[in-house]
Design a protein around this nucleic acid. Sequence first.
RNA 1: GGGUCGGUGUCCGAGUGGCCAAAGGAAGCAGACUGUAAAUCUGCCGGCUCAGCCUACGGGGGUUCGAAUCCCUCCCGGCCCA
Length: 429
Amino acid sequence: MGDGVGLFEEMKGRGLIAQVTDSAIGEMLNSSSLSAYIGFDPTADSLHVGHLVQIFNLKRLQEHGHRPIAVAGGATGLIGDPSGKSEERNLLDGDILAQNLARIEAQLSRFLDFESKTNSALVLNNADWLGRIHLVDFLRDIGKYFSVNQMVAKESVKSRIASRDQGISFTEFTYMLLQSYDFLHLFDNYNCILQMGASDQWGNITSGIELIRKMRQKVAYGLTTPLVLKADGTKFGKSESGTVWIDPDKTSPYQFYQFFLRAEDEVVGSYLRSFTWLGADELGELDLATVREPGKRRAQNALAAAVTDLVHGPEMTRKVKVAAQALFSEDILGLSEEMLALAIEDAPTISIPASSLSDGVALADLLYDAGLAKSKSESRKVIAQGGAYLNNVRVADPDVKVNSGDLIAGGVLLLRRGKKDYVVVRVTT
RNA sequence: GGGUCGGUGUCCGAGUGGCCAAAGGAAGCAGACUGUAAAUCUGCCGGCUCAGCCUACGGGGGUUCGAAUCCCUCCCGGCCCA
């Protein structure tokens, strides 16, 4: 699938390379076929948009003839990586971790090709090897190669040690050894010579490379990608309603699409490069469009469509686009029943019994029940401040009764909080 | 183990007997202006059956008319010593 341009140049052009351990990596990626891995710790039951850069990098790797290996951290997830974390983590329960792992493996599988004759992808679980090691063996065989002096100097550890009231537990301190051992294991058993990851993984990656050098007298390589940030420099991946997950049950495709649609002008260009496969010509055009006609948001639209396409498929993308257009249109009441049905098909929905509408439900209660307010207090406040809309019409009285007379086409209510958050209320009999 | 400092709302952080649902900042939410952007401005920002009540300042107990504030005890963390 290589398109003539070398993988390394392509990644570089897209701003996807932060650091490499050796400049030879460029040549290796372009000419030979190698195995490379990225680790994912199953700290939640789904991957989120923050993981997409790495997943897509594996995909790019495979498209250029390399074998991508995704390592799910069944063992390291139990420990917790201190990198980029300002405080000690709570340990995850083993059962929960196992469930998370299964789902994440399934998600990873969607993006990679496992059928290829030449460079089929692999998903491995590091519990398969880390779980078998005996402590004393590990300390003798692996621990011997690690200098605490050097570990302490690593940024991820240093910051925690410097932190006045946090500190770092021995458990998290050892994380680096486990990740290094992963690399060694993959190097030995899968001929994997490259580890990739976000730039906060640099310390962990290089320590794996050192371990391989010391134990095998062989060279392994590392490549990191820049952390994706929001325009204000804060962490990417959270929306107003929390983390943006890949699992459609945790973040609806509609919300997923909206998240990318709302990308700030300053970063939309880099997002397009990280999260889509658009070519240089198109990227250039969109950059220009953002400068010339920012109000049209062409880049944002292209971004949202392309990413939703990759993650949820073209059919879903089409639906959420229609939904967005309809919901943000001026008069929802003017929409045909058919259009409305299509628009709200995949919007978040709650159901209420018809009987409650015949008595009338206070708007404040409805907003709360719909999940648009965390408490009834909040619900009342939002309404009083003019932030609540019933069928796209602002209603500022929290005690106003909503009844069956408010139902619109198809027998639903459209409830909105603020400008962006919609919930469709369906009536059940 | 000893000493010492500390544990306050989502986070940071003031408060050392009543004026404390607790200063200030950040985050977040709503509104205005815009482009479903950014910046800015205004308001909100524990809960509830909301002009009232309930729950809260690490846990438990106590002193007091009254405690985030004082005492006892336990738990947790930092630093120093062993």
